[in-house]
Design a binder for these strands. Sequence first.
DNA 1: CTATCTGAGTTCAAAATTGAAACTTAGATT
DNA 2: AATCTAAGTTTCAATTTTGAACTCAGATAG
Lengths: 135, 135
Amino acid sequence: MALAAEILGDRWTLLILREAFYGVCRYDDMREDLKAPRSTLTDRLNSLVARGILEKQPYQEAGDRVRQAYVLTEAGRGLALTFLALAQWGEAHVTGGAAPVAVLDRETGAPLRVALVDEGGRAADPARAALRLRN
Amino acid sequence: MALAAEILGDRWTLLILREAFYGVCRYDDMREDLKAPRSTLTDRLNSLVARGILEKQPYQEAGDRVRQAYVLTEAGRGLALTFLALAQWGEAHVTGGAAPVAVLDRETGAPLRVALVDEGGRAADPARAALRLRN
DNA sequence: CTATCTGAGTTCAAAATTGAAACTTAGATT
DNA sequence: AATCTAAGTTTCAATTTTGAACTCAGATAG
């Protein structure tokens, strides 16, 4: 987890990834949302690309030249569970109220949540979980 | 999630919390494990206490004076799912190999994992999840 | 063809943060 | 009275971050 800490252990990186999950993928849109300094934003975006969490995709809008969009890679999308767990924690322990986003089943509209499950895919009581160091 | 980012968006804070989850709770033990500068460690521990994620508990060892231990509060323990999801991600996308820790059911010893579940506690396909902004 | 606009950066000085090492403190032990 | 230890403070140089101004490349307007 030390590497994960190195990647995520940065205020801007975390916020940039949140933007990416919301679908914001253009430099200037992120800059405006986050009010991050340009040089820092450029630096963090490059790091995330170098680590394979974001990738640049050229896109072109009508009557405009080609530009780069920053989109989540497969590995980047893999962080979704972590973000959802974090949002769920924030809702329960920090904001105290309802979080600004909810996770729903795209088809039934039923609410979903992050939980610990056993091999059969049944939610397990977190109190039963034990950490075991591998060797 | 902005507040969560403010709390966790820091390399040392993330590592300190990992120590706390492993059960390390003494200043000098953390300092040695993390090789963090004293001033930074003191600063981060104080922040975590101020935010109610860690708390100081006085303890006394035989023939020694009272000292303070830093232990996770209820809110702090609530971050476990987030950490497990992050460890799971690291295992799948960063280290490529087996993570150093596994989560097991304390009683049956069966492996557990973090997943998205529906209201009935059944694991749901992450691809079916959709974010919905509340208003 | 010259001027202007926009997204996506660079560059640079000033301010904030970090890191390493030395110093402090309060009790317990020698 | 001197020494040891856990848990900090203090100090100060080195690094990082910020904010503001500047650059660049192509599209479009006049």
